[in-house]
Nucleic acid binder design. Structure first.
Lengths: 184, 184
DNA sequence: TTGACAGGCTAACAAAGTTAGCTAATCTGG
DNA sequence: CCAGATTAGCTAACTTTGTTAGCCTGTCAA
């Protein structure tokens, strides 16, 4: 088990900005997260934000780091809760779904576009993905299971499933498919 | 088997614009697809484009329709090639992967953000998804399999897998997991 | 022939990220 | 305790982007 990566340390002010940004992101959507809107929420003018983050993408990157850290923590929590036994795939998926849907804006931000993560502490993504390896036992099923979970969350967030779909059952179908450790 | 939806009919000029847009999208990326850049490629000024599409999103929507139609055709082609037998999941996935990665910009456009599809001919999405039902035999495994495929493509396009990953093997792991028609 | 319409044009706006350069406060080293 | 540096704010302004308004010209049908 890899150690959880330490979050980047930031000034109090920078942390406040991130909190405000996150609030706007979740309450009003990604489009509402503009530098001017964010500045206004902090009672400040837009250019002042650049004293704390060099660019909007950097600010988003910091949000992504937070999101990944929280998601990773949730997943590792599920692993630990299982003690010495292997986590059931279904349990891991439930955790993933719940954690991801709890912060839709952040999740989309973290996994949209080619590379918002740039300087994303390198180990972070690997660490967050580790539970999938622990649940499946091999890297290929781990990646496949992760892809399934990611696809489900994205499609669910984007309302891409036909109305009336029993998504719980779809998640369960995936869980069944990836259980019992079959090899490719 | 549902009939393939007819593509929206458009004027010659509108079709030309879409072709140019698609070219820019694939050659230079989504950021390069601006109204001015597109207009320039057509030897025209930006506002002229609004004689043919009411908004940039409408133009993107038309591109998405094209993409979905092509992807759906590829998948249905795989179904037909199997004749009366059920398509192997692995075969369907290979088709999906190949078709999606052949037009990365278009694929991302079609499946990014909450709703680019708006007026997307309603049956189109259902029609494109039908092959997954035919390959798995029930709607829940169909949706789960689709989510897996979608997640794989997105992560692959975004370079989210650790370098050196054997993605072919990951796709195969997914294929194995979703074969043999297990029920949730 | 006349009038509608199709399809182009220029000028311009608003919103977005961002930069430059100023200033007031606060902290720090001698 | 003061001087200089740093911090963190400000205003003004620039660029890029989508988009609108309003004009003009050619084509084609009544």
């Amino acid at each position: 088990m890899t150690a959880p990566p330490r979050p980047t340390v930031r000034s109090k002010r920078a942390a406040d900005i991130l909190a405000a940004a996150r609030h706007i992101l979740e309450e009003e959507g990604a489009d509402a997260l503009t530098m001017r809107r964010l500045a206004a929420a902090l009672g400040v003018q837009a250019p002042s934000l650049y004293k704390h983050f060099p660019t909007k993408r950097a600010l988003e990157g910091a949000l992504v780091e937070q999101g990944m850290l929280e998601l990773g923590s949730a997943l590792h929590g599920a692993i630990e809760a299982a003690g010495r036994r292997r986590v059931p795939v279904s349990r891991l998926l439930e955790t993933y779904r719940k954690a991801a849907l709890a912060n839709p804006g952040l999740y989309r931000l973290a996994t949209a576009g080619p590379l918002v993560n740039e300087a994303l502490a390198d180990g972070l993504e690997a660490w967050a993905g580790e539970p999938f390896f622990l649940a499946t036992g091999d890297p290929w099923n781990a990646q496949a299971l992760f892809s399934f979970a990611h696809g489900m969350v994205m499609l669910e967030l984007d309302g891409r499933f036909p109305p009336g779909s029993d998504l719980g059952r779809t998640w369960r179908a995936g869980a069944v498919a990836f259980s019992y450790g079959r090899r490719a």
